[in-house]
Simulated assay, not measured.
Amino acid sequence: MSSANRAPQTSEELRAAILDRYEALSKRLQQIARYVLDEPNAVALETLAVIGERSGVQPSAIVRFAKAIGFDSASQMQKVIRDGLIAGSAVLGYSERVRQFSENTQARHGDRPADVLSEFVEGNVLALNNLRELINANDLRAAVDLIAEAETVYVVGFRRSLPVSSYLAYSLQQLNKRTVFVDGVGGLTRQQIQSIGRNDLLIDVSFHPYADETIQAVQTAIAHEAKVLSVSDSLVSPTAKPATLALQVKEAEIRKFRSLAATMCLVQAIVISYAFETAQQQARPRKTAASAKRRQVS
């Protein structure tokens, strides 16, 4: 069996294989690929019938997907995912906890403001705890480095993503990082992003359904050979798939309203980490100069 068709041996290899072969898959298999990436614990633990029902496909399509990735069977794929989840057991029950939370919320479904607040707090706590396990430390480090190395940072995010993108642009500007906030005022999104170059970085924040303006901004950045840092709800979204680095966020959904707490927390962590990095870099020359002066005096 060639290396291209070799079955992934770990969950990380499976994730890489899906991302690598995603564009070559049919739309139906892409639908399954997204479900596997977004809900690995469900894929690992549920039957094919349940997985098919939740992902909107026939069980036979799941078998075809597994074989397209290199496995002999769907059960072989499930075992690889299950082994990976056991190694990172803190994330194992997240989807199940979310389902239990939704069921409990529907059962009590109080209409008092205090009840609504309690539901949002509980749902966001679940999402925030999952964020800590979901984001890889190396990816977080890489995100900070991308910002530090960029000559100019362009920030884009429309509709539901707008509060996050505007906060991110504001915070970077407060840190004296050269930043362009692509807000599309007057329909000028294309003009605002047009000057991006290979030494620049585009940070996009985008969730389903993905704004056309954000997708176009990502395409422009890539065409201009700029780096792209994508914050999205799926690793195979039209903004995350072509990105230099993609960070996936799973937000809480309460009473059909999706929160932004986890996304805002992630963005704040990135910005504050960049601020620490900048402060440390600025402190080094001062320490070097002070040491040299002391040597001269002595």
Rank of each mutant, 00 (worst) to 15 (best):
S237P: 15
P238W: 06
P238N: 09
P238K: 12
T239N: 11
T239C: 15
T239F: 05
T239D: 12
T239E: 11
T239V: 15
T239L: 05
A240C: 10
A240G: 10
A240L: 08
A240E: 04
A240K: 01
K241Y: 14
K241D: 09
K241G: 01
K241P: 00
P242S: 11
P242H: 12
P242G: 11
P242F: 09
P242I: 11
P242C: 13
A243N: 10
A243D: 13
A243Q: 09
A243G: 10
A243M: 10
A243Y: 10
A243L: 09
T244K: 09
T244V: 10
L245W: 11
L245S: 03
A246L: 09
A246M: 05
A246P: 02
A246V: 05
A246W: 00
A246C: 09
A246H: 03
A246I: 08
A246D: 03
A246R: 01
L247Y: 04
L247N: 05
L247P: 04
L247Q: 05
L247T: 07
L247A: 01
L247S: 04
L247K: 00
Q248S: 12
Q248D: 05
Q248H: 06
Q248I: 06
Q248C: 13
Q248E: 15
V249W: 00
V249R: 00
V249D: 00
K250S: 14
K250I: 12
K250A: 10
K250F: 08
K250E: 13
E251P: 10
E251A: 06
E251F: 03
E251R: 04
E251G: 02
E251W: 04
E251I: 04
A252F: 03
A252L: 07
A252E: 05
A252T: 09
E253Y: 00
E253G: 01
E253V: 14
I254Y: 09
I254W: 10
R255L: 14
R255V: 12
R255N: 15
R255Y: 12
R255T: 12
K256D: 13
K256F: 11
K256Y: 06
K256Q: 14
K256C: 07
F257A: 13
F257Y: 13
F257E: 10
F257T: 15
R258D: 01
R258L: 03
R258S: 09
R258Y: 01
S259A: 13
S259V: 04
S259M: 08
S259F: 03
S259Y: 01
S259G: 09
S259H: 04
L260G: 01
L260S: 07
L260C: 03
L260D: 02
A261I: 07
A261Y: 02
A261S: 15
A261R: 02
A261C: 08
A261G: 12
A262Q: 03
A262P: 13
A262L: 07
A262K: 03
A262S: 15
A262V: 04
A262R: 00
A262M: 04
T263V: 06
T263I: 03
M264V: 03
M264P: 01
M264N: 13
M264C: 07
M264K: 08
M264I: 09
M264T: 06
C265D: 14
C265Q: 15
C265S: 15
C265A: 15
L266Q: 09
L266K: 01
L266S: 02
L266T: 02
L266G: 10
L266V: 12
V267Q: 04
V267E: 06
V267T: 14
V267A: 13
V267Y: 00
Q268E: 15
Q268F: 02
Q268Y: 06
Q268H: 14
Q268W: 08
Q268G: 14
Q268D: 15
